[in-house]
Write a protein that binds this DNA or RNA. Structure first.
Length: 316
DNA sequence: ACCCAGGACTGAT
DNA sequence: ATCAGTCATGGG
């Protein structure tokens, strides 16, 4: 079980120290975009960058990373350290809710992950909690991945999962998602759909192509575009984000349709609305005071600022 | 026991 | 084109 089937060539250990630009690892790695990082007792995170195992942690203003074959370019791209975060923030609208969300975790960033694993993670995300998606990711690695050591396994590629059976996938707690993941693996392994080609398409074309994959609808496609293909303008609306939009932005219109929420987000949150979405998502899931019951919310809703987000005047 | 979870697919209108 | 029903499973 050790040694002969290692997928990792024997690369030299690399230790990096990069300027973190305010990156908050804890917020970023617990914000429901990646599912393979685990925090050790020492607060350091063990996970994967470009298919290689590594250890990352914050040290003052530095982001430290250690792992075999690691490059500063890989770490920089993965954590989005090259992106103009000040410009992203200044592009946000004047919006008290978004301000609260951003203040709650200003170091939250959007990762640029591998498309295949991200595709699998979000196919498995349907009606699953984040802790369960992490469990499924771990299970898929243990059962189908290559062993780096006893408890560390790479994520299986599409051709590997395509050789499995739906029943064996189902054993990884996948439930009804087993068929989706199985068919998706075959679609990718057979090159019926090319994840590499999608990188060169426009966002709308890429979304259309991703939705040809079994188990990928609009929301999952948007998550893949945002968290793997670096498209900051997509705004995934899951049950939590929909809840925020309804309660905080459309309080006066309880029957507003999903389509209207999508159109509002497109026009309201600016060109980096994917980041706005992620701040809102992380805020409502981790701040117990973010979403309070409706009647109290109405009482404590900010009123002073006249430039508050328009709560969708009159559903047209 | 009950409700919910980073939804997608299907078949009936 | 919209719309309810259905799909497994585990956490709280």
């Amino acid at each position: 079980m050790t040694g002969d089937s290692l997928s990792q060539p024997d690369l030299p250990q690399v230790s990096l120290s990069l300027f973190s630009h305010g990156l908050d690892l804890d917020a970023t790695l617990t914000s429901g975009q990646s599912f393979s990082w685990r925090r050790g007792m020492d607060g350091r995170w063990r996970g994967w960058i470009e298919g290689r195992p590594c250890l990352v942690w914050s040290q003052g203003d530095a982001l430290r990373a250690v792992g075999p074959g690691l490059t500063s370019a890989a770490v920089t791209t993965y954590f989005g350290l090259e992106l103009p975060i000040r410009e992203i923030f200044s592009s946000f609208p004047n919006d008290p809710w978004l301000d609260k969300a951003r203040t709650f975790a200003p170091g939250l960033r959007i990762l640029r992950q591998e498309p295949w694993e991200t595709l699998c993670n979000f196919i498995c995300s349907s009606l699953k909690q984040i802790v369960q998606i992490k469990q499924i990711n771990h299970e898929l690695r243990q059962v189908f991945g290559d062993a780096i050591d006893e408890s560390l396994h790479s994520f299986p590629d599409a051709s590997r999962l395509a050789l499995a059976t739906e029943a064996r996938l189902r054993d990884c707690r996948l439930g009804f998602r087993a068929r989706h993941l199985f068919v998706a693996s075959q679609q990718i392994a057979s090159s019926e759909i090319s994840l590499e080609r999608i990188a060169g398409l426009s966002t709308s074309e890429a979304r259309e192509e991703l939705m040809r994959v079994q188990g990928v609808g609009e929301k999952v496609a948007n998550c893949i575009l945002l968290f793997a293909y670096g498209r900051p303008e997509v705004f995934p609306i899951d049950v939590w984000v929909e809840r925020v939009l309804r309660r905080l932005y459309f309080h006066d219109n309880p029957r507003v349709k999903h389509e209207k929420l999508r159109d509002f987000a497109e026009s309201h949150f600016g060109p980096y609305r994917g980041y706005a979405q992620q701040f809102l998502f992380h805020w409502i899931r981790h701040d117990s005071k973010a979403l309070i019951p409706e009647k109290k919310a109405a009482a404590s809703r900010p009123r002073k600022k006249s430039s508050a987000p328009k709560p969708a005047q009159k559903a047209g």
